[in-house]
């Protein structure tokens, strides 16, 4: 990595986002360090997805967003992505009418896309190259979605609830893939499954009511029942499970 580890890859400040003219997040500020996984947590509907979409310019936004020091808050989405941001959206958003191979081909931006890496991480997809993505299972679709982000060399990954609605075995597979990816690229991860958070994340940013209410290390947060209960309204699922 070219950036020194001390300098954060993403700095978000005073970020507000609107959907259909209505403010959904307000004055968000946090940083994503240049290595490891940062988890973005919060109750349903609190604005996690909206935060990610605001960073990418997928919804109307204002604020100061810097990628490795460069302002990106006025750029159109495709330019932000071209600067090395990989995106794995909530609910996969694979192109259902396109084949697996076409989904991946569409995502390839680099001159030398990392096809072997993707094939190694998701062997299931190799056999299904010619299958329409819409006919895949939820887990397989998630792999396509992840593969679309991992096939390029990125400076940052934005991953939105990659394990949502998946069977435990698939959750594991996704977590393994993310852990491997995190070796080389910093990740901002939205995740409801605290076991996955515990396994992957070093730091957490917690949202409530469209604002940041906690920033700190993952351990600090996950070991504090009271914090979890207050901000997520749940007991640590990993203890119960």
């Amino acid at each position: 990595m070219s950036e020194p580890a001390s300098e954060p890859i993403l700095v978000v400040d005073a970020l507000s986002g609107r959907i259909a003219g209505q403010q959904v997040i307000e004055d968000i500020a946090f940083e994503v360090p240049a290595t490891g996984v940062t988890a973005l947590l919060g109750r349903n509907g609190v604005g996690k997805t909206s935060t990610i979409k605001s960073i990418l310019g997928l919804i109307e936004r204002t604020g100061d967003v810097r990628l490795a020091g460069e302002r990106i808050d006025a750029l159109p989405t495709h330019r932000i992505v071209q600067r090395g941001v990989g995106y794995v959206p909530e609910d996969r958003e694979v192109f259902g009418q396109l084949t697996v191979a076409e989904n991946l081909r569409l995502a390839e931006r680099d001159a030398a896309p990392r096809r072997e890496l993707v094939e190694r991480l998701f062997p299931d997809l190799v056999a299904r190259r010619a299958q329409r993505a819409g006919t895949l299972s939820g887990g397989q679709q998630q792999m396509v979605s992840l593969a679309r982000a991992l096939v390029n060399e990125n400076r940052l990954l934005l991953v939105d609830e990659p394990t949502k609605g998946l069977a435990p075995r698939i959750v594991d597979e996704v977590a393994v893939a993310l852990a491997e990816a995190a070796q080389t690229v910093p990740i901002l991860l939205v995740e409801q499954n605290l076991r996955v958070v515990r396994r992957l994340a070093e730091r957490v940013v917690v949202l409530s009511g469209g604002r940041v209410v906690f920033t700190g290390t993952a351990v600090e947060f996950l070991d504090d029942e009271e914090l979890i209960h207050r901000h997520l309204g749940v007991h640590d699922a990993s203890e119960a499970a």
Binding site: L56, L58, P76, Y87, P89, E93, F95, L98, L106, R109
Partner: peptide, 21 residues
């Protein structure tokens, strides 16, 4: 053609893959 087919399905996701649709 690929971009157009994908764009018909989900234009936003095409731009989110770094393509100027």
């Amino acid at each position: 053609g690929l971009i157009i087919r994908a764009g018909v399905e989900n234009r936003q996701m095409v731009t989110a893959l770094g393509i100027d649709v």
